[in-house]
Write a protein that binds this DNA or RNA. Structure first.
Lengths: 224, 224
DNA sequence: ACGCTCAGAATATGATCAAATTACCGCATG
DNA sequence: CATGCGGTAATTTGATCATATTCTGAGCGT
């Protein structure tokens, strides 16, 4: 009887609660309402997400380890507020890693990969044209993560994930303030390089994309 | 019966249990007996470290997020076994970040910093001369971490921490197998560069150190 | 071999304890 | 009399634990 006893509307493969909390929180950090400097409390999340204490604690620990949340002395956890200096450090690492991932993806991208990326980029363009900030953030993230997956370099890919988590909230406020028009989009260039299997061009396009994005955040934050 | 919660950690400022467990586990991964491929269980640690379940869970999650532990499908957690490909990825990031930290440290190192580093390096030499593998690992790690602290770039420094956690177990087995004689030590060169405030020489020395270390692990692992 | 059951380990809950911030109140003072 | 201050009470939040529940894999019987 326990073989199918759980068929009560259970469509997907059962994910652990801490995993669900982690993903939810992660999405909120990247695309949601969690602004830099904002406090995150365990008990607030347990009531908000209707989850137990332990899963929430674990999700928070995990995000702290990834740099997405910061521990402020007295047991207080906040979304980090980035300084220009922080941006420079993130920039340095992104410049070292993401072009490399682009190069590797160049050699490995299948036709399906390329059309999937093209489809994401189309959605991205639509979001930009429509001034849809949330859509821009989501699709841009999807594009880069998909590209990183293609590169088959899990250590580098996870590393980049954690970098994005760090600057995500800042990118969001900056984008929200200035709109989607001025945003970087070297994706067309990247797609052409992938199709031509030209690793150098792909890397150069990625450098441009990273550079524009980081400089955008950097100068916007220095206005504060 | 057990109400001694306040007179327990008398060593220093009352650290939370999960923090103590984390550091213990981290030290075991870097310097202890946790070999690549070895399984790590929650219940094993609760009895071993005489800690509760929740702190152990949190420490493990944190280490997993840092890449020091790996989740193997069915709720099983192990110390990762690195492939040559993994080493290459770690190498790439270390090459991008650690020389930069050395450069920054060059500009910021005080006299006390330099003598502290020199003292650590002396202990390191003693460990190498005495064939003390554990001492080598500990002092080498201390040297680099101290240098990274001087550089005052917390994001880069934390990143390097997590990279060391990844290759720590492999470095340990390789060092244990081949002894301390053949190990890299560009530290003298680094110290001289710091004293002369020559950022380029410091960066070059660090590149050499990283290169030797990673190549050492790489070729030793490919023998397996 | 196949399926079932059971032991053991991981996951999750809620209670309980400790710490810290906030709220509040009386007192002294201008 | 209003106002600021110090200290204590109350509330909020984090940390830990004991325990219940769920899941996995192995052993056993058919």
């Amino acid at each position: 009887m326990n073989l199918q006893a759980k068929t009560k509307g259970d469509t997907s493969a059962r994910l652990p609660a801490h995993e669900v909390v982690y993903r939810t929180l992660r999405d909120r950090i990247l695309f949601g309402d969690l602004a830099p400097g904002q406090a995150v409390t365990i008990q607030g999340l347990t009531t908000d997400l209707k989850a137990g204490m332990t899963p929430v604690r674990e999700a928070i620990r995990r995000l702290m380890a990834e740099g997405a949340l910061e521990f402020m002395g007295n047991r207080r956890v906040v979304v980090p507020r980035l300084s220009a200096e922080d941006i420079d450090q993130l920039f340095l690492v992104r410049l070292a890693v993401e072009p490399e991932l682009a190069k590797r993806a160049c050699a490995l991208a299948t036709d399906e990969d390329q059309s999937a990326l093209a489809a994401i980029d189309t959605d991205l363009d639509r979001a930009i044209a429509g001034g849809d900030v949330h859509g821009y953030l989501v699709e841009n993230h999807r594009f880069h993560m998909r590209l990183n997956t293609i590169a088959q370099a899990p250590i580098l890919s996870e590393l980049v994930d954690s970098l994005w988590l760090r600057f995500g909230p800042s990118l969001r406020v900056v984008t929200g303030r200035f709109g989607t028009q001025t945003l970087p989009d070297r994706h067309k260039e990247l797609l052409r390089a992938l199709a031509a299997r030209d690793a150098e061009v792909a890397a150069a396009a990625m450098i441009g994309d990273v550079e524009q994005g980081m400089m955008f955040i950097r100068q916007a934050l220095s206005v504060d």
